[in-house]
């Protein structure tokens, strides 16, 4: 004679074993299943658009690094331009070769 607790344990164990028995069945899949999915994708125009998708595929840290690099490059380019302009103006004002203000 089994107690209620034992019976519950037995039923639980039996159901778990029955589940395992059922899990062994190999699925029967129609040969054209994968092709039918692709057809559906194409019919609904869910295709990926070349080039655009690669932006999606960049992961965030990599995209952020590129953005920071571009930003720093822009700052460097602007500062170099200012320096060059400064150099040119200074030379134009004080160098004899460019000094239009010279009276000689």
């Amino acid at each position: 004679m089994f107690s209620k607790n034992e019976k519950t344990e037995k039923l639980d164990f039996a159901l778990r074993e029955a589940y395992k028995e059922n899990s062994y069945y190999e699925p029967v899949i129609q040969l054209e299943w994968a092709d039918s999915i692709v057809k559906k994708i194409q019919e609904n125009d869910w295709n990926y658009t070349p080039n655009i998708v690669f932006i999606d595929r960049l992961n965030i840290p990599f995209a952020s690094a590129i953005a920071i690099f571009c930003g720093l490059l822009s700052i460097y380019a602007i500062s170099e331009t200012i320096d060059a302009a400064d150099f040119l103006i200074t030379n134009m004002l004080f160098n004899d070769q460019f000094n239009f203000m010279s009276t000689s």
Partner: peptide
């Protein structure tokens, strides 16, 4: 290939 727009390549992957 799929991400480049070739959705037909999804069939062998799915198979």
């Amino acid at each position: 290939k799929i991400l480049s727009g070739d959705s037909n390549s999804f069939a062998p992957l799915l198979r």
